[in-house]
Amino acid sequence: MKNREVILSTRSLGKYFYDPIKFKVLDNISFEAYKGEFLTLVGKSGSGKSTLLYCLSTMDTSYEGELFINNEIITGKKINELAALRNKSIGFIFQFHYLLPEFTCLKNVMIPALKLGKYSYKEVEERAYNKLDILGIKEQALKPASKLSGGQQQRVAIARALINDPAIIMCDEPTGNLDSKNAQIVFDTFKQIAHEFGQTIIAVTHDNDFSQSSDRTIELADGKIISHEKKNN
């Protein structure tokens, strides 16, 4: 697995919180994520995993050090540029699904693509159906998002994250409140996305099975990387 293409990297990333007291939540984080890699971030509660993910996501810009995506420096870009970049290149999956409740599942999936404006409405609809199909919830497409079970909502959120075929998909505990069967579906989907479509997945998780079967696991403790465990595959 040498000479793989780097899709995202950080250089000495650090971050402070000032409230209630100043403390360094991320300390000298430098790592690389490769194209088509299924990467997991683990660590004890409070170790800074979510905080790191938000920095990588470009939503949090108050850090020191540098962030690169696609060999391009992201640090210091304007917020509108960052929004456009997220729309095109980054998909998000949150622990608490966060669908827009008054829209149908289908529309929820379509929204980032309509925002991107690359495809016509019809094409976007078709693609959204396709993504929902991959996740096994095509039948729920026209239901309002609020009428779905937690697991179903999570899968709609995954479909939404995939709609623009982003280079990177980031998730914060994507299986946190799924049963083992649903967790397995999500896990298999991630593997497929990474290995078949060459998209990179960066997932924060507490789930040992989940991290163990990923390509690589980075472990954080007190805001520092303590291991870059590499699988030998």
Partner: peptide, 16 residues
């Protein structure tokens, strides 16, 4: 506010 956060996360800019 959650919906606004999700829209911004998925690439909607402040002006949107």
């Amino acid at each position: 506010i959650n919906d606004i956060a999700i829209l911004k996360a998925t690439g909607f800019a402040g002006k949107d």
